[in-house]
Design a protein around this nucleic acid. Sequence first.
DNA 1: GAGAATTTTGACAAGGTTGTCAATATAGGA
DNA 2: TCCTATATTGACAACCTTGTCAAAATTCTC
Lengths: 350, 350
Amino acid sequence: MAGESKPKTAKMKDVADLAGVSIKTVSRVLNNEPHVQDKLRNKVKDAVAKLEYVPSQSARSLRGNKSYNINLLCHASDSSYINAIQFGAVIACQKLGYQLSISLLEDLHNHSFDEIKAELEQLTHQHRPDGIMLVAPYAGNRMIAFALKELGIDVVRIGPVDLTADGILVEIDDYNASIELTKHLIDLGHKRIAFVRGLENQRATHVRFEGFSMAMNAAGLTVDPELVVPGSFDFSSGMTAGQTLLAHANPPTAVFASNDDMAAGLVTAATMAGVSVPGDLSVVGYDDSAVATRMRPELTTIHQPLHELGEVAIENLIDSFQHKRTGSSRRVVLDHNFVLRDTTAAPKNK
Amino acid sequence: MAGESKPKTAKMKDVADLAGVSIKTVSRVLNNEPHVQDKLRNKVKDAVAKLEYVPSQSARSLRGNKSYNINLLCHASDSSYINAIQFGAVIACQKLGYQLSISLLEDLHNHSFDEIKAELEQLTHQHRPDGIMLVAPYAGNRMIAFALKELGIDVVRIGPVDLTADGILVEIDDYNASIELTKHLIDLGHKRIAFVRGLENQRATHVRFEGFSMAMNAAGLTVDPELVVPGSFDFSSGMTAGQTLLAHANPPTAVFASNDDMAAGLVTAATMAGVSVPGDLSVVGYDDSAVATRMRPELTTIHQPLHELGEVAIENLIDSFQHKRTGSSRRVVLDHNFVLRDTTAAPKNK
DNA sequence: GAGAATTTTGACAAGGTTGTCAATATAGGA
DNA sequence: TCCTATATTGACAACCTTGTCAAAATTCTC
């Protein structure tokens, strides 16, 4: 009960001796392998419990050429979107006996393929993760995915990636979610609807705009190119977009911002300019991240099951390489939800 | 350039053969050990470069009984405070050849010491990190720190911890920062100043309140117990606190919220109640986290160098066990800044 | 220039696990 | 009952690095 002076950890040999079997049998029991009598199996389990034995990860790694480690490749940014996904990923890893580690990747803009590959090789050779998880803004980067494939590392990507992409993909149906969101605005009676794009190197930007356009067209509305403004998925670009749109000679009555952070910036810009939301301007976001319920009015948006995306991603990744299906392709699509809150209303002068 | 069918990784033996030396010499060069001629040293380095050799982490771990892994113990929450610290920690780890992994700890409320220790033993035995980093809300938990100490694991804690605590501590001077912040309100002319506490099991709550009280007393002002309200460091508890305070028969003219999230909730509650900030009510927060500049008006607060806290924490932790100073105690205090923004002004009816 | 002191180098073992393969025990078939 | 087929078990090597210690090479001292 007092200080244990020798926190000497038991090893497999000790368990074997206590159970009166060979270490190989202990190994078999621990890895749930067949060919062990129930009687011995129980003896071993008792010994394991008694000695509080935990296998040495490094020895297993060395012998089995596995690291029991999944690496999450992140960009340096404070994003509650990624935070939530990370959370789900950690849960799944812990459940499956893996460990989630975080690595930061420099900005890879205008880097050549070879440079990117070298960078990734450096990063992965260091700790040799069994798999890598890619989220925005890297999930949609073809060069990264390709480089990792060449390096023989299993990858799971979260979010909308090229339709032709292979590997493991976990996402929601961005296209239809965007249509839903746009329809909501149209159903309220809006006709001049603006769109704030995200980073152009992310497929999310394009898919969401595509859904938006299709919904507009289907309703017989045209997309005014002047009401399509750039953004970079962050708060301040949303503010800028808002200022641009409100300064327009014939401003929109509603805006589709392609994520919540930009929607928040937009609402802030509107409010500061004396434009009331949703009275004078309706705004929708995308993600349902933390900011959506912290701003006022609260944001109408698409809810992405972020924790679940993270969990499912890890589960599929691990399942894939545990069954030696390395290189296999699968695409998992999770459900989204339209969340009606307070930033949308019918336009005034209809 | 095409697909490398054999991504066969070189091992130390290969380097040794190419350089014409023994593997031990290669080992020495790689670990910057003395007793190698410059000539051989260069030969080895060339061979390493040519073969793109990277040592096997698992073999090193097994032999050296190190994991080159630091574990960050987190609570399940979406906190940009922790996010920023994590960021700094990853940077430092990457720089020093370590890996930062994330683990989630269940809520440990009303768990006995033995239960906590068992839980931590389970967690750490799995992957045997070389060190553990503790942040809020666990940094100040005495039982966790003590259990880890008994388990023989090096720990670094971020944030205000007991004055008598040993181990490695990295923090800012919360006491004096709180005094500064309070003085600012007092200097503006405020007399009825409220205080929103954080979680009671965190030392930050107590230190900040202590600073607040001292500053009030020093200025000859009394702290009205009715204006000291509870909180839990999150947005919604800030809103609740705001509602409570505004409903008071004799409401305060200023509020010290013990972190930014609560300050944001408070400002939101005030705005919704038609109380203008800073016109009718001044508000200060603490941390200078992302929300501080995304809310309107922007928040007057104390800036904590979060990235730096994370970096310095990791550096000290690694330095400590690399020099076999396991168990050594040190306390690093980083600079903070008072950040004047738009949520504070002189009271109206002075 | 010979012997001692020091520096440089390498052979070998050890670290804890799992894969391979052979040995043993059990079950099945004639 | 004996032989074959199958299930169970264990001995040993291998994974790749680093610590130990001894051997070899170099430098120093008188």
